[in-house]
Amino acid sequence: MTIDLFRGKLTRLAAMNPETDAEMVTRWNEDTEYFRLLDSGPPRLFTSKNTKEWMEKRIERGKPEFLIRELESDKPIGFCALWTPPPQHGNAFVAIGIGERDYWGKGYGSDALKTLVRYGFLELNLHRVSLGVFEYNARAIKAYEKVGFKMEGRERSAMLRDGKRWDFFCMGILRSEWLG
């Protein structure tokens, strides 16, 4: 009965392994164009060892992450995660990033996100999935809308980057919307 829950059309979700993946994640994080699309915090330079420890701590705190692998080649191309703070409300937040630039703008991100959202609704039995996205990340906003996320408002001028103020958009998809 169980469908292949971790598998999409272009990508599959796999385990993130701090032992083997820390170096790759460190390399992704050093690409500040990637980092500034993903994280509102200032990019900082860490060693693979620091990254490995951070990844291990997240697993300890119950915040595991999936590795996104391209189906055809099995190459790791990014990460994604669902975080439920706190759990009784049935809401989770998405984090997703395609670290390998060659895979931007080709549908890999939305494919992985579709798989992650399905996991949230079918395995975690969520009522809704939330995400935040930066005003200047047009590519991601389009991908999220394609997956079915709706705009729910914006945190005004929440970010100051490159001398300009930007809004932080809030999006969400309800279970009924995903099923429908």
Binding site: Q88, H89, G90, N91, H127, R128, S130, E152, G153, R154, E155, R156, C170, G172, L174
Partner: peptide
């Protein structure tokens, strides 16, 4: 204070 967003049905109380 200005209302900026509503995370619809994100609280179950």
């Amino acid at each position: 204070f200005v209302e900026e967003f509503r995370r619809r049905e994100s609280l179950y109380i």
